[in-house]
Nucleic acid binder design. Structure first.
Lengths: 224, 224
DNA sequence: GAAGAAATTCGGTTATATCCTAAGGGAAAC
DNA sequence: GTTTCCCTTAGGATATAACCGAATTTCTTC
């Protein structure tokens, strides 16, 4: 009964059991470039579900463009986003053939889906990606387990900066609610920290979704 | 400046650069059962460091007996334990050849060390283990990101119960400080929740490290 | 461009967990 | 058996972020 931004349920879910119609999306690209490795790119509308907790996990996913949130829910609607994924990143790993999380498109997104079973050579290629995801998750544990609100938001902004190649102009694909649910904070707290950083001259806000990091070193000093 | 249980540094570290002498341990078992796959079992004393953040990662580790904590530190000493490992479990995965975390023996422990490079077949065997670790970490994010103190401790106790095969008598290898740093709480809060669970009849404490889960279903109802 | 809806920001109050201090208990050392 | 030290428990004050309500801004839709 602590933290919130309560959310009823995966909202845009339509047909949980039928992958083909599970999304409000249209096919974009011919399904396969090689017969032996059938994979297709599917468009997902904003907030469309890509997969849901409990479903059988039969594929891997790669973001072509757009952004994805992977999250888990408590029964009362509390949500924890464990990761965001942007263009190029692979997600959807599962250990036992079932999804333990939900995945949704944050904005209109194209997702490439790999359905072939994992041979040894493919496993070798996937392992480093999975290990990187593991390290990211464990580092995120430090952020939400031991850092205060300002430190968490600073870490988040720096992470976004890094992912967008270092240009100080950072485009946020996600809402304040998403950021809060990623950082284990409420939207009010996230908003307050943004305002505080603005007042201190660390960032400049051009619209709600565009953040210019003026003093990244100040943010970096915060969360070391 | 929020949460604590501050710890200066990996305390028992002796020779950071010399793996063989890095621990206060003695060799236990002949180094290899197969010449092509040299691996050895090393004894670590309680609180001895197994590896440290920044060191080159050249091996995988498996707990023979005892228990291990894997953690990360902030510069002011705040610590987040990302995982505990008990007999049979494998840890020490790294993505880029360097350790991003510290690993220490919680109690006197024996660790089997695998040094051979990862071939495709081995990668395939390791992948499911890494994926399981990834899911654990992401599920733990939900616990410390969105659950309150009582829910966190309940989740921890149930996790320990499951790991020890379901016998209601749970032996805790770790101190209250370790539990706090795993759950993102202070030791006072952990202790208070233990007391509250005892008063409610959920658990019985036989000594500090032995917890009998009398009503696991009550704990389960707490953290769903 | 106007109206409506949604998302974000702001202000004030409250609750939870930290912080600080101190007492109690067990294990190890003498 | 006694002492010492460390871990744990306990109590009370404080602070941080949640909670609640509302104003403002932004985005959609017409």
């Amino acid at each position: 009964m602590l933290s919130h931004n309560a959310i009823q349920a995966p909202s845009t879910r339509i047909h949980p059991d039928v992958p083909v119609t599970r999304h409000t999306a249209t096919q974009l690209v011919p399904p396969a470039f090689a017969p032996s490795q059938p994979h297709q790119v599917i468009l997902y509308a904003s907030n469309a579900e890509i997969y849901g907790q409990g479903e059988r996990a039969t594929a891997l996913y790669q973001v072509e463009f757009g952004a994805v949130r992977v999250y888990r829910l408590l029964s009362d609607g509390r949500r924890q986003i464990s990761a965001f994924h942007v263009a190029g990143e692979v997600f959807g790993f599962e250990a036992d053939g079932h999804h333990h999380f939900f995945a949704e498109a944050i904005c209109n997104s194209a997702i490439r889906i790999f359905r072939q079973p994992l041979g040894a050579d493919i496993a070798r290629g996937i392992l480093p990606i999975a290990l990187k995801a593991l390290i990211r998750a464990q580092e995120h544990l430090l952020v939400i387990g031991r850092q205060n609100a300002a430190e968490r938001v600073a870490a988040f902004l720096l992470d976004q900066l890094e992912r967008q190649g270092g240009l100080p102009q950072v485009e946020l694909a996600m809402s304040r609610t998403d950021i809060g649910d990623y950082l284990g904070l409420t939207i009010e707290t996230v908003s307050r920290v943004f305002s505080k950083f603005r007042e201190k001259g660390y960032i400049r806000l051009q619209g709600v979704r565009t953040v210019e990091l003026i003093k990244p070193e100040a943010l970096r000093a915060l969360c070391v």
